[in-house]
Amino acid sequence: MKIGKPKTTTIKKILLATVLVVGPVVALSATGFSLNTTECLPLGLYKSVSKPITIGSLATTCIPLRDTQEGLRRGYLDAGTACYGISAPLIKIVAAGAGSVIKETPDGVWINGKKWPMSKPLLHDTSGRLLNPDVGVHILEKGQYWVMGLNRKTWDSRYYGPLSKNELLERQTPVLTIQGNL
């Protein structure tokens, strides 16, 4: 009488499933493609382009190391090697650069006097953990950039402040996306 399959069969199936899922994602990444699975931008496939990163463009970004470590602990970031050897980058909109005045209030973010859509910062994440919005006025210096998403729940410069030019990796363009409920 056979009660159950040996554990090695289960392990082999898990390994095979992992290879079938992770393998294509790694292969896409190696060819300049990124998969956005968050709601900060439309879900889907993005590709690196050789154009310079400009205000208004999409870019893969690393965030400051202390925030990267916190993001990994909280599950906001995926593991990877592109950012400090420990996390995968995020795709964000480069909303502002040098000379821009960012005013972050409990009601939202104003960039040079214009309110960014759905930018009211949250005080807690979806797990109820405390967030610390970077409320105040920021005047971006040369080499600093403010990045945003298109969803109130996006983890963006509202929480970690401006990024340096070195933290903007590559310009991205949508290839195949699904417009969700942002």
Rank of each mutant, 00 (worst) to 15 (best):
A79I: 04
S87M: 07
G71M: 01
Q172S: 10
P121M: 10
V94C: 07
P64H: 02
L43A: 04
V109E: 01
T61L: 02
E70V: 09
G128E: 11
P174L: 02
L131A: 09
L15T: 12
R73E: 14
L72W: 00
G71R: 07
W110Y: 12
W155A: 07
W110D: 07
T18H: 09
T173V: 13
M118D: 15
L20C: 14
S48L: 13
N151V: 04
R158G: 09
A98S: 14
V109Y: 07
V109S: 09
P64M: 10
Y84T: 11
W146H: 10
T177L: 01
W116G: 03
E170P: 00
L65I: 04
K115H: 06
N151M: 00
K92I: 09
L72Y: 08
I14C: 11
V147M: 01
P106G: 03
D67I: 02
V21S: 13
M118E: 14
T68L: 09
L90D: 02
G97H: 03
T60H: 08
P24H: 12
V49P: 08
G108V: 07
Y159M: 01
I53V: 15
M1W: 14
G108I: 08
L163D: 08
W110P: 04
A59S: 08
M148A: 09
L90V: 06
C83Y: 07
G136I: 05
S157Q: 00
S164T: 14
G143Y: 05
G149Q: 11
L43N: 11
K13T: 12
L90A: 02
Y46H: 01
S57Y: 06
Q179S: 11
L16E: 05
E39S: 10
K165H: 06
V147C: 00
M1E: 15
S34N: 11
V109T: 14
L169M: 13
G32Y: 02
S164C: 07
G161T: 03
G75C: 04
V137D: 05
K103L: 14
V94Y: 08
K47A: 14
L43K: 03
K7N: 13
L131Q: 14
L35N: 01
Y160E: 02
G113N: 05
A98N: 10
T61S: 13
G161H: 02
K92V: 05
P42D: 12
D107E: 15
I91F: 02
P174C: 13
K142F: 04
L176D: 08
G97V: 11
L72P: 01
G99L: 06
G97C: 10
D156E: 05
K5H: 08
L45A: 11
K120M: 14
N151R: 00
G32D: 01
E167R: 07
K153W: 14
K7W: 09
E167Q: 15
T177N: 05
A30P: 00
S87K: 02
G108W: 03
L130V: 15
